[in-house]
Design a protein around this nucleic acid. Structure first.
Lengths: 342, 342
DNA sequence: GCGCAAACTGTTTGCGTAAACATTCCGGCT
DNA sequence: AGCCGGAATGTTTACGCAAACAGTTTGCGC
């Protein structure tokens, strides 16, 4: 009766429809659909043909209901348009797809505890097998987050949550790379344009910067704080110009470095002849800044892949000991840094 | 027997568990859960208390199986790390969340027809009520895409697919804005650094650029083609320098403008004194380029919101006439353009 | 040819939910 | 009191799939 011709069928074909057309039982269709069990080749052929004809697609809701598995990973992120986030998201999606998992995305505007709890609870009754959350804002940690208990979770953030499973780029090592590069160039010390105080990654970079200076026995200049934006970098640049003694600046991200460069240009302070500048992230634009920016490259792909690997291990094999899986960064030397002969 | 104390329960509580605890039927729990039907206030109280105690979360797989609705939108994108994509994704996610929908993300590396068809078929049997796809690469259109038939779909792309429902920023109007701005400044004509030929948005911008020049009776210089990357902009800049007659350049995106600016810097060609440059996109960095970039701002938020609105209308109300919902762009004048006195 | 594994296929059941239908309860009316 | 009607709640059923189990066929050795 209801053939395919003359428009789309009202409802999608189910296994039963396929079974009837192929002259087998619904269960046999299920077996063919899942590839696994032994089905006689010509039966399989008939079933596949029937599937083809009816345009059969397995109903994932039913499958999930039966099996309790969704083959979906929840991803919780804030500030998606930031370079790091989208890069990370892409790599998470790719890693998940390779293992047959889909991504359910929840992005939050403002990383407050209530927002996050709301999002987590939403993911909790959404259909996901595990959650990757990238949380960076520190004030979140002051109050307890209501982590899901039934669903494995991986956090992308290294500084805190040491009692949980997490993955991140090695912020401290990266910052150290920057400082040591500048010190190695002969600069007496290194100024720092930090990210917002309530960001864990910003705090880690700042901390490592300070530690590296102290270790080398250098004076530690006062931190200039930004908010990741080019604008705040611009302001920081102006303040540094006023102080007028900086010969080397390490910016906590490339965008702030960009703003800083603009401030220096406007003031006629030559980079790198008079001041060296190092960024953090290695955005695609950094190479084309003026001058091309020396910066710390973060391997977001690897971090995302690690996070997914840790999550899938929990989902498919069971609990994993808490701890952080760190990905090392490396320094990309371009034209914004030069030797200093005090 | 199995109380909450002493660790998490093995399985999540179902409506039946709640019903037993509250001393009502499963159906009554369902009624409370869906808010709708009339339930006596104190019964409702008891049920809510039981839900609370058991940490009950509705099982979305079961709900979807029963209702045939998933409250999930599939989003298909390529090149997630591009500025426009992530911005769009964020706005789509936000618009969807406002209406109670979740986002299932599928990103593809290389927008070939087979890749896209694969992704679509995946979404087709994934649990989604509708699909938003952002497809830009033109070669995709040469072969037919196997669009889902059972699931409403909205395309973010304006130039093609006029027989489908789509939303986009008005590429042509945006390009026109750029050209007319430069012509208004007294430039005899405007050079163009175009995006890759197989991108619909690039083609539209190029087309509108040409049309605007022709309309104004100006000579149409040869197009310099890039691939969106800063690197290609840099190369384009070098080629333009060799030709050595350009006084005004319209770049098809900000990244290429960035590369172009670097090429001009290196050659000592002053911007905007000797050459004016206009970009497209208005990335957050553009304001801090050197000089700050005059550019066409794209309202990605609005495009994403439109796409979701069109999709939800189809899902909840039924078919929508094909056509494109365009969002106008506007010009942000900064320091990279100046009057020309030939 | 018989019997017995092994290979294949069919039947039953239940996952958690919500629509449809059935039942009970209760106050107000004659 | 008896009855009616609507509100409140309970019971049955089916959504599509896959596990568990049961049944049937096939091939092979004797």
């Amino acid at each position: 009766m209801t053939s395919t011709l003359g428009g789309r069928p009202a409802r999608a074909a189910s296994m039963l429809d396929v079974a009837r057309l192929a002259g087998v039982s619904q269960q046999t269709v299920s077996r063919v659909s899942n590839g696994s069990d032994a089905v006689k080749p010509d039966t399989r052929e008939r079933v596949l043909a029937a599937m083809e004809e009816l345009g059969y697609r397995p109903n994932s809701a039913a499958r999930a209901l039966k099996s309790g598995r969704f083959l979906t990973l929840g991803v919780l992120m804030h500030n998606l348009k930031a370079f790091g986030s989208s890069r990370m998201l892409e790599s998470i999606d790719f890693a998940a797809a390779q293992r047959g998992y889909s991504i359910e995305l929840i992005s939050i505007k403002d990383p407050s505890t209530t927002e996050i709890t709301r999002a987590l609870s939403r993911l909790d009754h959404e259909a996901v097998d595990g959650i990757v959350m990238r949380l960076d804002a520190e004030h979140v940690r002051e109050q307890a987050i209501d982590f899901p208990t039934r669903i494995p979770t991986v956090i992308i953030e290294s500084a805190s949550y040491s009692d949980r499973v997490s993955a991140d780029a090695d912020q401290r090592q990266g910052a150290r790379l920057a400082v040591e590069h500048l010190l190695g160039l002969g600069h007496p010390t290194v100024w720092h344009v930090a990210g917002p105080a309530d960001y864990a990654s910003a705090a880690a970079r700042e901390d490592a910067w300070r530690a590296a200076l102290v270790e080398a026995g250098r004076p530690v200049p006062e931190v200039v704080r930004g908010d990741w934006s080019p604008d705040s970098g611009y302001l920081a640049g102006k303040r540094l110009l006023a102080a007028s003694e900086a010969t080397a600046v390490f910016c906590a991200n490339d965008q702030m470095a960009l703003g800083l460069l603009r401030a220096f240009h406007e003031a006629g302070r030559a980079v790198p002849a008079e001041v060296s500048v190092v960024g953090f992230d290695d955005t695609p634009e950094a190479e084309y800044f003026w001058p091309p920016l020396t910066t710390v490259h973060q391997d977001f792909e690897s971090v995302g892949a690690n996070a997914v690997a840790l999550l899938l291990e929990q989902i498919e094999a069971g609990p994993v000991p808490p701890g952080v899986r760190l990905t090392p960064n490396h320094l990309i030397v371009r034209k914004s840094t030069d030797a200093w002969h005090g």
